[in-house]
């Protein structure tokens, strides 16, 4: 994955194959993933998503998940 630019597809691959319960993402990737039901579903399994690298404008999100 390090050879590829960061985008939703490899993130979802890693969420699927890796035993993880939380993630750190830049806002652009999170915004893009919020518009795809499959990708949103992959995020919904997590306990925590942290946004780093820039401000997240919640108006750019297509949907909002509350992770508990």
């Amino acid at each position: 994955m390090s050879e590829r630019p960061l985008s939703p597809d490899p993130v979802v691959e890693c969420l699927t194959c890796g035993d993880v319960d939380s993630i750190i993402l830049p806002p652009s990737v999170l915004e893009e993933m919020s518009g795809d039901p499959g990708q949103t579903q992959a995020l919904a399994k997590l306990k925590l998503a942290i946004v780093l690298g820039g401000a997240l404008d919640i108006r750019d999100l297509k949907c909002v998940l509350v992770l508990t």
């Binding site: 960061l6 319960d21 993630i23 750190i24 830049p26 306990k47 925590l48």
Partner: peptide, 26 residues
């Protein structure tokens, strides 16, 4: 603070990294 929250809530934290950046202080 986010580091404390992550420690409290996360068991395995995925950090996908961007291409072309060397590690930052972050």
């Amino acid at each position: 603070f986010f580091t404390k929250e992550a420690t409290n809530r996360a068991r395995r934290l995925l950090l996908p990294r961007r291409n072309g950046h060397s590690p930052t202080s972050c």
